[in-house]
Write a protein that binds this DNA or RNA. Structure first.
Length: 289
DNA sequence: ACCCAGGCGGGCG
DNA sequence: CGCCCGCATGGG
């Protein structure tokens, strides 16, 4: 079973719900511009600016490209949206009960995305004690102020750029108490540590490395491992995931983060990161309209 | 006016 | 290890 193929203009897709993928509080939610239906999407990716339109349905769709439609851009899209993932396999691994079955049916075709580690780090430092709408505003404000000027767009600012930012200017972007974390993380990732060095490491090593960064704790490290390094063993537990797990599996009784990690490990094994995105998004969508 | 948000660092017992 | 606190800011 193939879940994508190249076509003359762009990329054909199958089992790909672009709207839930874009909207589900992954880094592209914060970085990309998109219309209400998530048909037209554009975002900076390295030195490039991807400008795409989605046609068709989640069962049988295609991605068209404005401007640069080279093979490199198509490959970037396949990689970014993880279009090589075997969805049937992933679903069979996480479809462990009636609740998961319903979440999968409701958000069928929602993908994990694979994002730049530094961008992911900044996005999720900002995410702490914050809400999705405001995270997006803050990230975009940082791109507007610090993004490196390219041909008609600004790319996400590097750690070299952000390490020289003034705290008060970062706070003017709405970062609040997280401004200090962003600056310290930028200094550390420029002078003392290379995020790229974690590329081929195991989940445990990736997480151990990430947690050394200022402003990165257990939860944010799992987000970066999942969305920045593609580690499906990562299971970020935020307030929504915690509440949902307690409600569905523990009769509404509180459980420690540690206990919930053990639970997810046992229930979903090496695919818990994929399961997490469905638990998070289902919980958040039904928790608040 | 009030509570909450994809938590973290630091201090305490 | 667990618990508690402060933290900036705006959405609902």
């Amino acid at each position: 079973m193939r879940y994508y193929s190249f076509s003359s203009g762009g990329v054909r897709t199958k089992d790909f719900d672009i709207r839930h993928t874009i909207e589900s509080a992954q880094p592209l939610t914060f970085l990309a511009d998109y219309d209400q239906e998530c048909r037209r999407i554009s975002y900076p990716s390295g030195r490039r600016f991807v400008n795409m339109q989605f046609h068709g349905t989640k069962d049988n769709g295609s991605i068209g490209l404005d401007g640069d439609s080279s093979i490199e851009v198509k490959r970037e899209i396949v990689k970014r949206f993880r279009l090589t993932d075997n969805m049937e396999r992933l679903y069979s691994e996480i479809n462990t009960d009636a609740f998961m079955d319903e979440a999968i049916r409701r958000y069928h075709g929602m993908r994990l995305t694979l994002n730049d580690p530094w961008e992911t780090t900044v996005c999720f430092i900002i995410s702490q004690f914050n809400n999705v709408k405001r995270i997006r505003r803050i990230v975009r404000s940082i791109i507007d102020r610090y993004g490196e000027h390219r041909d008609g767009f600004r790319s996400f600012p590097s750690s070299e750029t952000l390490k020289d930012a003034a705290i008060r200017d970062l706070m003017a972007c709405g970062t609040g108490f997280r401004a200090r974390y962003i600056k310290e993380a930028a200094e550390y990732c420029t002078d003392n540590f290379n995020l790229g060095s974690l590329r081929n490491k195991s989940y445990d090593r990736v997480k151990d490395g990430l947690i050394e960064i200022s402003g990165v704790g257990d939860k944010v490290a799992d987000c970066i491992a999942l969305f920045g390094y593609g580690k499906l063993e990562a299971f970020p537990i935020d307030v929504w995931v915690k509440r949902t797990l307690e409600r569905i599996y523990f009769d509404g009784k509180e459980r420690s983060i540690k206990e919930l990690h053990r639970f997810a490990e046992e229930k979903f094994g090496g695919y818990q990161g994929f399961a997490q995105q469905y638990i998070f998004w289902n919980g958040r969508q039904s928790g608040r309209a």
